[in-house]
Simulated scan of single mutants.
Amino acid sequence: MAGSSLLALLDDIATILDDVSVMTKVAAKKTAGVLGDDLALNAQQVTGVNADRELPVVWAVAKGSAWNKAILVPSALAISALTPWLVTPLLMLGGLYLCYEGVEKLAHKFLHSEAEDEAHHAELTHALEDPSVDLVALEKDKIKGAVRTDFILSAEIIVISLGVVASAPFMTRVMALVGVGIIMTVGVYGLVAGIVKLDDAGLFLTRRTGDSGWARFQRGLGTGLLKGAPYLMKFLSVAGTVAMFLVGGGIIAHGISALHHGIEGLAHHAGEVSVIGGLLGGLTSALANIVVGLVAGAVALLLVLAVQRVMKRGGKAGASNTNG
């Protein structure tokens, strides 16, 4: 009897772990948009940090990210247990924020002048060269800023993951969200550490001496890493932005029944094309979600800009009345 009970328990555990594994994979795919942007943003956060301090800074931000998820995961589980009706609105809000962030990135060159970007870069360069500047304080500010950015991105990841596992049993939700949190933290910051050290690795390889084929190969590889690192950063940024529209638009479309069914209908018709129907159907669905994401993000950005303009006018009017 005890033996059969133990076997039944092990079978239940195996079933739960299998469910967790499947849902964790689905949740990880759903958060691809945030992940790509997370990589690019966090790799950029260590720009301007001395080379020997890059990894300690990444480690400090990774620890902050772990604390963020330690706060967010229980909060998400509490919401799903006590107020499950909030999951869909939060998911939609997270999707809208993804789209807004993507459009804001696209509109950056119109919203911020080159002079502003150059001034920011010059400020960082001056800080590194000026011996009177407290580099420890500068580093701490960078870490705090990166952890704040991570909190927003982590919240998006957890909310999207929660939407995937919302209907699962409570323990499955717990294990899936914890699994996603661990995988995303270790994966993102492990990759960030590798990315920020690509140039150092390339420089090390270019200094290899010798005339052997192996030495020449290492120098060639080092040169390739030095030249390719900036392009990798650009690729991550572009891929992350596209994925933000794809994932965010998909979340919004899924939450609006008529829109969701309309996209499904388009994809179904495209899928009926002979030979390339499967590929065409998938592309149609993806492009439709991207368009939804672009439109939603543009509307959100316009609203934010309108609110900011009204607040500035109100502030100026208040200052005028005070002076008068």
Rank of each mutant, 00 (worst) to 15 (best):
M1I: 05
G3T: 13
S5W: 10
A8N: 12
L17Y: 08
V22G: 05
M23C: 10
T24M: 14
A27F: 04
A28N: 07
V34L: 15
V34H: 05
L35P: 01
A40K: 01
Q44W: 12
D52H: 11
D52K: 08
R53V: 02
L55F: 11
V58S: 05
V58P: 01
G64P: 03
A70Q: 08
S75P: 05
A76P: 05
A76G: 09
P84R: 07
P84Y: 11
P89F: 08
M92Q: 11
L93R: 01
L93G: 11
L93P: 11
L96W: 02
Y97P: 05
Y97N: 03
E104Y: 10
E104W: 01
L106T: 04
A107H: 02
A107S: 12
H108S: 13
K109H: 14
E114M: 09
E114A: 05
A115E: 15
D117W: 06
E118S: 07
A119K: 14
H120T: 13
H120P: 04
L124K: 04
L124S: 10
E129R: 12
P131N: 03
E139K: 08
E139G: 04
K140Q: 14
K144C: 02
A146V: 01
R148H: 08
I152N: 02
E156P: 06
V159Y: 01
I160T: 07
S167V: 03
A168Q: 06
M171N: 07
T172S: 05
R173T: 03
G179T: 00
G179W: 02
V188W: 02
Y189P: 02
G194D: 06
K197I: 05
T206G: 01
R208K: 06
T209Y: 00
D211R: 13
G213S: 13
W214Q: 13
G220Q: 09
G222W: 07
L225T: 06
L226M: 14
K227H: 10
K227F: 08
Y231D: 09
K234H: 14
K234L: 15
F235W: 09
F235P: 00
T241V: 12
L246C: 04
V247T: 06
A253F: 10
I256L: 14
I263M: 10
G265Q: 01
H268D: 13
H269T: 13
A270N: 11
V275T: 04
G278Q: 05
G281I: 03
S285V: 02
A286Q: 04
L287F: 06
V295E: 02
G297W: 00
A298R: 06
L302H: 13
V304A: 11
L305F: 05
L305C: 10
R309M: 07
G314S: 12
A317M: 11
T322R: 11
T322Q: 10
